[in-house]
Design a binder for these strands. Sequence first.
DNA 1: CTAAACTTTCAATAATTTATGAAATATATT
DNA 2: AATATATTTCATAAATTATTGAAAGTTTAG
Lengths: 167, 167
Amino acid sequence: MEYQEAKEKFISTWGSLGTLWGINKAMAQIQSLLFISTKPLSMEEIMEELKISRGNTSMNLRQLMDWGIVTKELIPGERKEFFTTEKDVQELARHIAKERSRREIKPVIKILKDVSSIKDDGTEKTKELIKQTKALYDLAETADAMMNKIVNQEQNWMTRSLLKLIK
Amino acid sequence: MEYQEAKEKFISTWGSLGTLWGINKAMAQIQSLLFISTKPLSMEEIMEELKISRGNTSMNLRQLMDWGIVTKELIPGERKEFFTTEKDVQELARHIAKERSRREIKPVIKILKDVSSIKDDGTEKTKELIKQTKALYDLAETADAMMNKIVNQEQNWMTRSLLKLIK
DNA sequence: CTAAACTTTCAATAATTTATGAAATATATT
DNA sequence: AATATATTTCATAAATTATTGAAAGTTTAG
């Protein structure tokens, strides 16, 4: 496999993985393009490379910046804006995990808590609803806490966390 | 909040969470309906409850069965088929984690491995591609291993894993 | 201040995904 | 075997989501 083929394979794989996880294709592809680029890229270059429109590029770059994994780079003497992504995979994972917890997990946990706290009217179906949503609440909270714990450790957290677990 | 409201809130929240994570709404809703039901439900009852068509119900039940989280229940004397979902949240999480690893993570890891193994032609861009995809490969493999480790422990694995990590 | 370079917004459109419903198939009952 | 009941399939419709491109908005340079 040559460079070009490998690059395309990487970008398209990442794009479709994104889709599978509820992230849109262009967004995932822009990020992966930046991830393997040796230098910051301009909007023009991204459009060109991925064959997507200006509007699409602009909107998805904004989203990536909202997620905190892409930043504008100002290059002296250049009028255009350039973009880079977080290059450290662990840092990247940390950002994504944090954001996803905040945006998606936490609100659901809140609702599970509310639902599992309804008044027990003594009927079987109410008991079941309370019991099951309570169990889900506990699981979600533990999983979320665990995630944050793992992710908020210093360098090499993942490997070290894994070692701990294996013991 | 009364039973009916709580129930609807739970089902619709679960449905939209599903959507966010690349699982379709009907599938998530059927599963959540079964999850809080006190007895197995027939296709008829599911359709009625969620106001979805017969075809939709049939297709999504099949998918849930493919995922291994819903099973057919044969009720003596009944001609219809009835369905239940795994009621134990930890067992449920285990199933989902395993399947997701097998279907989605493993194939991507494979591709990352391939891409990161291309011949180093000495150019900067090739070096970067190799370096970055290698880092991603390592991360993905560690994360996947960790997931499986956590999930393949006996009862209360999650709480116990968390305790280990806190120490 | 004005013009050029560049970016953002957003209505229109395209692409993709999901849902419907009726015909086809399968299974059970008499 | 014939009939009734139940389930699946699949072409088509509907809904949702992503993309385009051109107009509007910004910023910088002269």
